[in-house]
């Protein structure tokens, strides 16, 4: 894969015989090169997915700690805000001397961008539980652990899912820049084709990245509806 980035000065566009000179997008060429895009798409999915999962694994417990110990909130917000504010390319470059060139560096940078939104949304969600709901649960005889698992977590879910939705789309778009560090994802083709007059390659990679973000967004919206059926229940509705 990395060889491709160091490819010939005149790029090998493959068999373009079916394409016209000034064509915006050549389907034949795209079909010929589908294997390459498919491989990059799969990479893109797992590079993003790893970052999002690790982000959740860090941000959810951190939010829970901040929910229980409010003095933990400010340091956590400051830390994740700093990570969020650093320009992404700068972040990638900053990390190279520490973690080297590879997937690890990419994931550290991508995870860094997920934390603020996931942490903040989760904390907001945990705090959104109406006090009377908590009071009723306690008075009825639910233990603090049962209140957390049965009441607080489910009620925080809509806020968590809203954060996850933004984070997913952001991560998928940021992951296109990961190819600057190491050959992963659709960013490879974007970097490879960006300076050329034959733009089918650039369009293919760019549109695939956008489609991936849209599909992921739709999946999360669907998942949200599935896990929070009550959120749409209103008077008069069923």
């Amino acid at each position: 894969m990395s060889l491709r980035l160091q490819g010939p000065v005149i790029p090998d566009f493959g068999n373009t015989s079916g394409c016209k000179a000034n064509e915006t997008f050549c389907w034949d060429w795209f079909a010929d090169h589908w294997d390459r895009f498919a491989a990059e798409l799969v990479q893109h999915v797992y590079v993003s997915a790893i970052a999002i999962v690790i982000g959740l694994v860090i941000a959810l417990p951190a939010a829970l700690v901040a929910y229980r110990l409010p003095r933990f909130e400010t340091p956590a917000v400051v830390f994740s805000t700093i990570l969020y504010t650093i320009p992404v390319l700068g972040f990638f470059l900053l990390m190279i001397p520490v973690t080297g060139i590879g997937l690890f560096t990419i994931e550290i940078a991508l995870v860094g961008y997920t934390l603020l939104l996931l942490f903040r949304n989760t904390l907001t969600g945990l705090r959104s539980v109406p006090p009377e709901v908590r009071a009723a649960a306690l008075g009825m005889g639910l233990t603090p652990g049962q209140i957390l698992v049965r009441i607080t977590f489910p009620l925080a879910l809509p806020a968590v899912m809203a954060g996850l939705r933004v984070v997913t789309v952001t991560t998928i778009s940021l992951a296109t820049l990961a190819a600057y560090i190491a050959p992963y994802g659709l960013g490879q083709s974007i970097l490879f084709y960006i300076g050329n007059t034959f733009i089918s390659g650039l369009i293919s990679a760019g549109v695939l990245a956008i489609l991936l973000a849209l599909v992921a967004d739709a999946l999360i919206v669907g998942l949200t509806r599935l896990v929070t059926p009550w959120a749409r229940a209103r008077r008069g509705g069923a």
């Binding site: 109406p130 009723a136 049965r150 009550w230």
Partner: peptide, 12 residues
């Protein structure tokens, strides 16, 4: 235990 604000669990 019954309270004024009821406190039904909205997600159930």
């Amino acid at each position: 235990y019954v309270i004024q604000q009821v406190g039904l669990f909205p997600h159930m």
